[in-house]
Amino acid sequence: MRSALLALVVLMAGAIAATAETRTSARELLPPELQAQQADDDANPGMLWVTSGQQLWSMPAGANAKSCSECHGDATTSMRGIAARYPAIDAKSGRLMNLEQRINNCRTANMAAAALPYEGEDLLALTAYVAHQSRGLPVSVRIDNAAAPHFEAGRRFYFERQGQLNVSCSQCHDDNVGRRLRGDRISSGLPTAWPAYRLDWQKMGSLHRRLRACSLGVRAEQLDFGSPEYVNLELYLAGRADGHLVETPGLRK
């Protein structure tokens, strides 16, 4: 264990300790040409999924042949600010839901349509489209009342040492932010870019796919997409990112 940690620490050059005040978007760690690509909607490939989502928004689905737009109208107004408040407690079921789960819940409960597979193109596109409507707005999730135990569970997960490397999320994303890990700099772990276009994947992907990559990285069990543990963690990460601006679709390495 000690040797693994030592290796991790020695691999990192430079030393900047992260605090809540210094947390920044991983966008700022990108090289200038990739930052420019994210900023240009005509060059950012993530916008392709936003466009796909826009098409799906008004496409009828399910037994009632209803589309999202029939109830929610123009997403550019009705969905503005929604993603910045997710994950959130669903009033009806009392469950904590992230945006993907909310979209699927809407499909099964209100549209008599089948749930879309997590990480499938359609759910990625719809999630990206809805999240994109909050671009530039500050993340502001509820972490009190019914959400409080979920936030606390997410916080515990974040600080718990995991996997064969026996490291916690915090040991990278608080203690070693900005330091080098191979060709990368370690980010503050803000979940503001998602779904994001990741160059490693050569496509759009969800936050949970990214979390699964983290789990693999520390050789911990990769949990299922939409698993309660990851949704709790997502809430903690969002709470920790309070006030930071949504940037979907982000571009990441």
């Binding site: 005509d42 060059a43 490939p45 916008m47 392709l48 466009t51 050569q202 496509k203």
Partner: peptide, 28 residues
Amino acid sequence: MRTARIAMPKTARKGDIVEIKTLIIHPM
């Protein structure tokens, strides 16, 4: 269904040089 995006102006004056940017979903 593939999704493509095309960015170009809707109008231009004769003789203007128009810049066009395109993206398309494809795994290559």
